[in-house]
Design a protein around this nucleic acid. Structure first.
Lengths: 334, 334
DNA sequence: TCCTAAAATGTAAACGGTTACACGCGCTCG
DNA sequence: CGAGCGCGTGTAACCGTTTACATTTTAGGA
């Protein structure tokens, strides 16, 4: 394999000049530059980035920690990360954690061994907890964020978004509203639940504890949660699922039971994944700027990497949008 | 940052011994090993893998080139890749190509600069075409494969799978069968179409060219393709969509038009993505071992990386399974 | 006790770039 | 005409690890 010395000999210049030709071409005269480029071409020279990065103590790679790639919402966030990283010359390392803290920590540890320059964390986890602030590697939490301010957090106004769903239900005349929440220990669940409660109270209503079913954000769990909600004495006329996948599972079960949506029951989801606009009926949901989450995370992370200390651990909030589709309708049609 | 020399001084041994302690512990006596480990711990030493990999001329990273991460089938394949790579000590670099050959080539080029040890390619593209066989970097094509034998190919028996869908339709009494295919230049489209034609002929039927609509594997394109098929003079009673997403779009449009599935029309898809079992009606489809594709690709790629020349460019075929669900039923019910 | 082989450890040279510093050259300006 | 400057280039050290080879230590047998 051709290295920088091969090329320097071939071009009749020093290794430094070859190096400069590729990393700081403006520091080399036009004539030598051409000479070197020609020699490099002839030798089939490609700079060894392993060596370059080693010297620079930088890998130009970003570790992305995601609980589950198969989740379509996360896929979109990753698309955003990938595209922004690509334009900035960073490559992305993918870590599928399955929500396991151990895997999470393992992957995040790659930043200590210089395999990654920073971490984007898509779940409410701090892989560097316990590390003194000035020594913490660059980290950005997105989507599901930490309460702590140990790193920049980019999130949605989950409570506000949940409120807007409740407001929509109430405006349609719904009074008995049910919820299929996510795992109870998730900040997402907590914030969305708080938003629901806030909005209910603002309308003089109560979110009955029995009308809150527990899911785990999987389609199956949405399917499974329906029976309990529909067997309540005071059956809800509208159900808010904390993500679209659970909503799709719920819709399926509701139809299996012979009910019509939205005539008998209104359903709303959260995330606006691709399939939601094609379900039957199409799903009322909260749209999140998934790709923007990814892009912004990369922007901030790169700032942290390139000028340490320049970024404060701010919490930023991206806008949501209530998308009203066919799965929600007026209450009391039957 | 603590390096190997810091530790060697602290432990009172040579750098070689420290190195051996971590890379070949069996070559170091028990007592020194303990001494070194303790010193390393005290110094907060983590080996610089950038340096190690540089020395080894290996990055222990695999480049995964995928046309579109947001595709749920690819997500599952990537999960498989990630998990197998993780257990083998490889990290995975993600390249979202959007199907653009240029991006594809750019990413694949990272193997020349030692940033990746090999490439897993999820589309029918050879990023190393033109490179002499003995110099080609490790590459495995999966899912959508090349006709050439320039690298190992892991694929499904697409024609066989398509045939089995047609057989299923015919067994239900369908005679007029429509197809929503993928992009015409895709080997996937070509093979599945060939399978359809073969099966139709075996049953003494013909696949009418007018009954073949063109999609691009997106949900929207499935939606859009329906009108043309349903306005045919000889309207099909069953439609085979070449992936599940198009099938979901198609189902949506068919229901909008007031038809019942499967009473008026049977629909089948391909891939068995997660949502397909929850659609209404649930989707008859071809199940592919997505994670297995990923795992096998990593297995083979690692063999190629570790013992070059040992792997022949074989073509292997993974099994499919026809999953019969609610979207297909007997013909001529109305 | 001595000799030999095996095991453990040390020394120092790579690996392929980058870059601080030195140097030479041509130019400008006083 | 010489000092000073800036540009382009070269020399060589350095980054942190691995590893071939040399050397020392240990163990075991005669």
């Amino acid at each position: 394999m051709a290295n920088i010395r091969t090329v320097s000999k071939l071009a009749g210049v020093s290794v430094a000049t070859v190096s400069r030709t590729f990393s700081t071409p403006e520091a080399v005269s036009e004539t030598t530059r051409k000479k070197v480029v020609k020699a490099a071409e002839k030798a089939g020279y490609r700079p060894n980035l392993l060596a370059r990065n080693f010297r620079a103590k930088r890998s130009f790679a970003i570790m992305v920690l995601v609980p589950n790639i198969a989740n379509p919402f996360f896929s979109r966030v990753i698309s955003g990360i990938e595209s922004e990283a690509q334009t900035r010359g960073y490559s992305i390392l993918l870590g599928n954690t399955g929500g396991r803290p151990q895997r999470n920590a393992e992957y995040a540890g790659m930043v200590h061994t210089f395999q990654a320059d920073g971490v984007i964390q898509l779940s409410a986890y701090d892989p560097f907890s316990g590390i003194e602030a000035s020594k913490r590697p660059p980290l950005v939490n997105i989507c599901e964020c930490l309460d702590a301010q140990s790193s920049p957090q980019i999130q949605l106004d989950n409570a506000g978004a949940a409120s807007s769903v409740i407001d929509h239900f109430v405006a349609l005349g719904h009074r008995r509203i049910g919820v299929i929440q996510g795992p109870p220990d998730s900040p997402l669940t907590r914030d969305r639940l708080a938003g629901c409660q806030r909005a209910m109270q603002a309308h003089g209503l109560n979110l009955e504890p029995t009308a809150i079913a527990e899911g785990d954000f999987s389609t199956q769990s949405g399917f499974d949660a329906i029976d309990a909600l529909l067997s309540l004495r005071k059956r809800p006329t509208a159900i808010f699922c904390f993500n679209d996948e659970m909503a799709i599972g719920a819709i399926r079960r509701i139809k299996d039971l012979g009910y019509d949506i939205p005539v008998d029951l209104s359903i709303a989801g959260f995330d606006d994944i691709a399939v939601s606009s094609f379900s039957v009926p199409s799903l009322t949901t909260i749209q999140q700027p998934a790709e923007t989450f990814g892009r912004r995370a990369v922007e901030i992370l790169c700032d942290m990497i390139n000028t340490p200390g320049s970024v404060e651990n701010a919490r930023s909030t991206l806008p949501f949008k209530l998308i009203i589709r066919g799965s929600t309708g007026p209450a009391g049609q039957r």
